[in-house]
Nucleic acid binder design. Structure first.
Length: 496
RNA sequence: GCCCCCAUCGUCUAGUGGCCCAGGACAUGGCCCUCUCAAGGCUAAAACGGGGGUUCGAGUCCCCCUGGGGGCACCA
């Protein structure tokens, strides 16, 4: 396997404009894996140059989400680092300096037309765009433009895109991509508020921060050539560009977006990092699942811990094709990881879900037993109250019908129940070993099947038609309560 | 409309010219196990979008078509 041997410097560079979703989580993960695999640095950079879209608290939620996944970074706004500051709004002088440099070298120009902001005539805008976003000010003398700028005239800075020729940029997943310059715009580099747009900021920062590998999703492919031009204009070497494909909605129709969240959440499918945990998913499962969307290791291996991923991740095995999300596979991984947890760990993770379900969990020993009983039966932590809430109830209320055995009358069932009670009361303990045979014998003596006996017990003890095995259940509930619930079942049958 | 990217089972994917009458996983069906439900084991069905090339030989290389996706903001 080919590995990147030299330590990389990679960055995850989100903008704090809302909640962090899974796609971002995967991009961050890939960055992290590469950094840890090569002994390099993983940098968190906040791209907050759009003040209008800034969302308070987004940065905090982002960091929490990444930590929840198990990712940490070596440099960032919270931990500092030699290449800071790590928030772009705190770096504005840098961008001004570099954009001015471009202007002076004739590779960018001041533009004074306020076309796109409050254009009312849509046709005007359209025609402007037809001319490839080239402002008439492109050919204005710099001295003249400088005077206008000095006079406080509102302006933006645009890149002076060559009008002929072509450019080739290289993506590590797809290879060379060549486009004709004529299809490219004189893109705005600096807004009238003096802050840079993404295109300028990403190039300047990646260069200044010594980024060796830039990972971002494929939605950036269309503007990739522009970034190539910017690197050329500055005379800088480019990092290795890696554009993993985007996520598609589960139905494969269109890219996964924040707008889809609500509908998906209703189906129990979270897409925001901060939702997975409270929806009952384990970070281990989410990491494993997400890593495998657009990346694979070989033709069989699918289970990867974070350590495995750090060791085995490789850019070469990234797929260029968009991928639809398969949430049932996430459930599969979640069940898998739940099953590998030690019981004490599972119990600890289960506790908040029982409490959220309204159950008082004050017996740690019992919680441990419940966790053990439920372990192989859970695909999701959030199912715990529904599947095992009865363990924590003082009383259960079985449906009378459920206590009546198949092809049996209420009376026969009651008679059976009384025998069961007598037998259980005389049992030395609830272990399968000592209790199973007597109960089976009882069924046989009464001309019934073992299923009748166990069925009654299950329903009387749990008021559920499915539960952990009866013996295990009885042990957890305890003799006193078991007998209590059996008697109550008999009582219910008496009144049918 | 223009530009760019992509194309193997329903979904995620393995496959870098012969090892492929295409392998794995999820989901689905069946069987086994079994006190229910799970878990586990076995098993079934399920794909190289179409057409041209290149080659002794193509899922694998090239071209066209089709289909899908992305982008076209003083957002990232």
């Amino acid at each position: 396997m080919t590995k990147t041997i030299k330590p990389v410097r990679v960055r995850f560079a989100p903008s704090p404009t809302g909640r962090t979703h899974l796609g971002s989580g995967r991009t961050a993960l890939y960055n992290y894996l590469l950094a840890r695999q090569t002994g390099g640095q993983f940098i968190l950079r906040i791209e907050d140059t759009d003040q209008k879209r800034f969302v308070k608290g987004a940065e905090e939620e982002l960091m929490e989400g990444l930590h929840w996944l198990g990712l940490d970074w070596d440099e960032g706004p919270d931990v500092g680092g030699e290449y800071g500051p790590y928030r772009q709004t705190e770096r504005r002088e840098l961008y001004q300096k570099y954009s001015r440099h471009l202007v002076e070298r004739g590779q960018a120009y001041y533009c004074f037309c306020a076309v796109s902001e409050d254009v009312e005539d849509k046709k005007e805008k359209t025609s402007f765009q037809k001319h490839r976003n080239i402002c008439p000010d492109r050919d204005v003398d710099l001295a003249e433009a400088d005077q206008k700028v000095a006079g406080g005239e509102p302006h933006v800075i645009r890149f002076r895109m060559p009008r002929d020729g072509n450019i080739t940029v290289t993506d590590a997943i797809r290879g060379d991509i060549t486009v004709e310059n004529i299809t490219l715009d004189d893109t705005i580099l600096v807004k009238s508020d003096g802050l840079p747009v993404y295109h300028l900021a990403v190039v300047v920062d990646d260069h200044l921060m010594g980024i060796t590998h830039a990972i971002r999703t494929s939605e950036w492919l269309p503007t990739f050539p522009l970034h190539g031009h910017l690197y050329a204009a500055f005379g800088w070497d480019q990092p290795t560009w890696i554009h993993p494909s985007i996520f598609l909605k589960p139905d494969g129709k269109g890219k996964m977006s924040k707008r889809d969240s609500e509908a998906l959440m209703e189906a129990g499918k979270p897409i925001f990092l901060s939702d997975f945990g409270r929806m009952g998913y384990l970070p281990e499962a989410v990491v494993n699942w997400a890593a495998l969307i657009g990346w694979s290791y070989d033709d069989k291996t699918e289970e990867f811990s974070m350590e495995d991923l750090i060791e085995k991740f490789s850019v070469e095995k990234l797929s260029p094709a968009p991928a639809a999300l398969n949430f049932s596979k996430l459930d599969h991984f979640n069940g898998l990881y739940i099953r590998t947890l030690d019981v004490a760990d599972l119990a600890a993770r289960l506790r908040p879900f029982f409490e959220a379900g309204g159950y008082l969990v004050n017996d740690d020993e019992k919680l441990l037993q419940v966790a053990e009983a439920l372990q192989i039966r859970l695909a999701n932590l959030a199912e715990a109250p529904e599947k095992g809430g009865f363990f924590f109830k003082d009383e259960v209320y079985p449906d009378p019908e459920s206590l009546i055995g198949k092809k049996m009358t209420a009376e026969q069932s009651m008679e059976m129940a009384q025998h069961i009670e007598t037998l259980i009361a005389s049992l030395p303990d609830f272990s399968e070993e000592s209790a199973s045979q007597p109960l089976r014998d009882l069924a046989t003596e009464m001309g019934l099947k073992a299923g009748h006996v166990f069925g009654f017990l299950r329903n009387a003890l749990t008021a559920q038609k499915v539960s952990p095995p009866v013996f295990e259940t009885m042990e957890i509930i305890g003799r006193e309560k078991v007998l209590e619930r059996i008697r109550k079942g008999i009582e219910i049958l008496e009144n049918v």
